[in-house]
Design a protein around this nucleic acid. Sequence first.
DNA 1: CATCTAATTTACGTTAACGTAAATTAGATG
DNA 2: CATCTAATTTACGTTAACGTAAATTAGATG
Lengths: 137, 137
Amino acid sequence: MSSKRTQPARIYWTINELSRSYDVTPRTLRHYEDVGLLSPLRKGTQRLYRERDRVRLQLILRGRRLGFGLPEIQEMLDLYDADPTEVTQLRHTIRRGDAKLQELHDQVEELKTLIEEITELRATMQHRLDQILRQED
Amino acid sequence: MSSKRTQPARIYWTINELSRSYDVTPRTLRHYEDVGLLSPLRKGTQRLYRERDRVRLQLILRGRRLGFGLPEIQEMLDLYDADPTEVTQLRHTIRRGDAKLQELHDQVEELKTLIEEITELRATMQHRLDQILRQED
DNA sequence: CATCTAATTTACGTTAACGTAAATTAGATG
DNA sequence: CATCTAATTTACGTTAACGTAAATTAGATG
């Protein structure tokens, strides 16, 4: 098992640094904070994002690419925040994790079905194309 | 190869019949028509949905479950409407189908990664829970 | 101290995907 | 013909996820 706890190259990022490296606007980062997805530190009035915020942002953006809404992304991020000393919390969080996993598996299945259908459609069109081109000779 | 062209049980559905069987409101069906996703016949002023509209509606609703927007769903539906006698159209549609397939494959990969992460998180929480319960004895 | 620059807050604007209410119409039925 | 019922159109409303503009602030620099 490879050890975790590798030193991150940096400790703090400003809003502009973080927004540039993930190709989002500062406004987007502030919005994610407004709805509770991120919670950077403050140095006076300025936001300071830590490694934790960076990781969360990556999860958020992947969630968006996958078509999830921010509330649903929130639910998934919450899974990472269960107090590991509280039996009740652990039990509940495991249950919700299982439910989410079920949904995600279903979604993979639907995506695969869609891929199959388009693949078959593609093949049909290719055959038609080949037929036409052969007739032209 | 099983023959296609099975007789559908019915030929026409009204907007209420269709909306009930797919658990959407009539307004939703009208909206999909407004944006060009469906195009039912008219008997006077009344809409008549055919088998084709039913199939399209299924594709639309699956697209929505997968998190796609209506314009993106439109693109995918367009793949089914290429004129199979036009070489140029076939070529273009095959290309766009391939591009879409690439995106869908990427999306499956991201989903699988997400599933793996949550699965591992679940395992970690289960271990913590087991530890705590053992200590209580 | 004056001037930049990066960041901030406030607040109104926009797009997508319908919801909802109101007024109208077309057949079916007694 | 009167009355229902299922549909229709019109048009304004709502939520999500930010965009955008304006006014303000906090350090950094000459």
